[in-house]
Design a protein around this nucleic acid. Structure first.
Lengths: 156, 156
DNA sequence: CCCGTGTCGTTCAACTTTCTACTACACTGG
DNA sequence: CCAGTGTAGTAGAAAGTTGAACGACACGGG
């Protein structure tokens, strides 16, 4: 039997409803968080995420590719982002001792300070727009559901 | 009492964990869906979303601003997106009879055809990466959680 | 040792999104 | 009927992202 239009497994009405809610919700949330960060701290959400990762890494240092895969960004994108941040003194780039191809991105003291200053407002916004509107059970359900997303194998 | 560092209501370890899962999950999901659409249908996720909205509207027609708020995009962004799509014959722009300022975006037959062709693959990807990995309860929980996101009042 | 293959990070150009300003029209109150 | 104010959509430049190609280095097999 050939695959025809009727063989498509469409979403049920319910599934579609929740899927739409998800789409709109993420869009609104991202929008709100970006705006807050940009307005209050002059940082983009991406830059903030970079700083968070670096701040938690050993020696506030990560390889570019590691940063990219953790952010689910292309290597090219991370190159640009880090370059911009370096110009502003938020991060530094250092050759990697153990791998001649590698570059380590390091969060500078200034970058760390910027993160410390930006964090409370960001966390407040995350609470305001999402966390505080959900019970702990709902928040866990949300997180657990999203953990089921397939890791993208063939990323750029 | 002044607001000091210690007054910040940080996320609990658990909340932070779910929040991270959410962030990574959405990133991966968006990435996967964009790639699938781009590869299989030559459409961006945004263009696809525009077409979905239009296809469901009365007369396959929507006002630009309506489209913008439904997509949670800026009006400017929608202007550009629709302009590009118009050049490809997917949509048309028509003056709005009832409001001299307004423009109606209309999904063309060609646009509808493109949507019909792209939809099965997209739905399959949504299932593969998310829906089929969740129980119906989990999917509902996800949708319900995201419905609690505050509608962004002061959007651009 | 060195070749083939693969990874790392960057570059450049094309493309998309954002930001700000602007024109045109709508609507309300005097 | 006509300010004043607000909304709809656009334009153009600046900023960010993508995708492909590239040089540099790593690494295993012959």
């Amino acid at each position: 039997m050939s695959v025809t239009e009727t063989d498509v497994r469409w979403l049920t009405a319910e599934q579609q409803q929740w899927w739409r809610s998800y789409l709109q919700g993420t869009a609104r949330l991202t929008e709100a968080l970006s705006r807050q960060l940009e307005t209050d701290s002059g940082l983009s959400l991406n830059e903030y995420e970079v700083m968070v990762r670096l701040s938690e890494a050993e020696g506030r240092t990560m390889r570019m590719a590691e940063l990219a895969s953790s952010l689910v960004h292309s290597r090219s994108r991370v190159t640009h982002t880090v370059a911009r941040m370096e110009r502003r003194g938020l991060v530094e780039r250092r050759a990697c001792a153990s791998d001649g191809r590698g570059i380590n991105a390091v969060l500078t003291d200034q970058g760390m300070a910027a993160l410390v200053e930006a964090a409370p407002g960001h966390v407040r916004a995350v609470r305001e727009h999402l966390v505080d509107r959900l019970t702990d059970d709902q928040m866990r359900a949300l997180g657990e559901a999203m953990q089921h997303v397939a890791p993208d194998v063939d990323a750029v």
